[in-house]
Nucleic acid binder design. Structure first.
Lengths: 190, 190
DNA sequence: CTCACAACGCTAGCGCAGCTAGACTCCGGG
DNA sequence: CCCGGAGTCTAGCTGCGCTAGCGTTGTGAG
């Protein structure tokens, strides 16, 4: 059965290749440039091969988004454990989140604008999403006081997310994002 | 020259008809159902007519979004002037904003996800966008204290917007939006 | 009243998208 | 050596945004 194993291994490699190429293509030319034809060309297979791995184009984007959540969770955890004290950890995590979104705008877009199928509250929530939320909750919950920690985390996360998306779409004054983040940090500590 | 005037009037009517139909179609079947062919069919003209009114499909969506901002601004202003006292006004405006987004999800989508060309910080910011922001600023600025009122408004608005989008995409626990809004109101008053 | 003309809307079609049916190739097992 | 099936490809479907170019029709001058 070694033959079959080799095939499955190669298949898994190709699966990952599709995800990598999709992400790379999106990062260099934007999501609108990610078409099944171009994707097929880059992986050096024909279009139908994509559909033997993923249900459709959306599923590919979703896979990229999932990787994004895993990366984000790791960055947040690094930032949190790297800081000493509640206040420092809060600022570090917020900064790490914002930096991640700024450094990977296309990835962030996949995570929050493109892949709307990925739910959080549902029982089928993928692990990376839980991990990312948990990393946020770990730092926000301390500030909740007598309020429900999870609700507080949701609100704080929303503020952060809103700041990033509105800023990215040109809805806020450019070059003031630093001030806004600082104000958010201060407000959360009140 | 009455003939020409009549033509311009009819042309303006058709212009508005396109916007109305686009919005109506989006509200009943989603934005993905809004295609130039279907739009043309509904207004009972051929596709090229659309392009004599708008530069492209995006411009049509943008026109719908602009109407959305005007409506939102009106709702917020109503809520603010209808309440007495800073605290009541704050809660009323936040609720009005959230209600607007809930009642018109498709419109809100056009305003913030589809029409990313509409900028705020720029000098060419359309009037309805300014009006909407001003309505928010009118109630948030009072709470700024010693902080920059505009920055505070931007942060508060971001929190509100983030709450709505994350909730809509299933990223927050359903049926808790009320608690989250209440927590936001309280936090802003701290 | 006639008629040239310009404005206007239409038909037809281009290139590209996501996706799939069906033919072909090639390799492992008997 | 050949059969069977897994795996891949070619070709093509429908529908998208958008546009070139051809009527048609109503206007205003003569």
């Amino acid at each position: 059965m070694s033959v079959q194993e080799r095939r499955e291994r190669q298949r898994a490699q190709r699966h990952q290749l599709i995800i990598d190429v999709a992400r790379q293509l999106a990062e260099s030319e934007g999501w609108e440039a990610v078409t099944t034809r171009r994707l097929a060309e880059r992986i050096e297979y024909s279009q139908p091969v994509l559909y033997s791995h993923f249900k459709g184009k959306d599923a590919i984007v979703e896979a990229v988004a999932l990787e994004g959540f895993a990366e984000l969770a790791a960055r947040l955890e690094d930032a949190r454990t790297g800081a000493t004290g509640t206040h420092a950890a809060l600022a570090a995590v917020l900064r790490a989140y914002a930096d991640f979104a700024t450094a990977n705008p296309v990835l962030y877009d996949a995570m929050f604008a493109r892949a709307t199928t990925l739910a959080f509250g549902a029982p089928n929530t993928p692990e990376p999403l839980r991990a990312a939320f948990a990393a946020l909750a770990a730092v926000f919950a301390d500030l909740a006081g007598d309020r429900d920690p999870e609700t507080f985390t949701e609100v704080a996360w929303s503020a952060l997310h809103g700041l990033i998306t509105l800023n990215r779409d040109g809805r806020l004054r450019p070059d003031r994002q630093g001030q806004r983040l600082a104000l958010l940090v201060a407000q959360l500590q009140r």
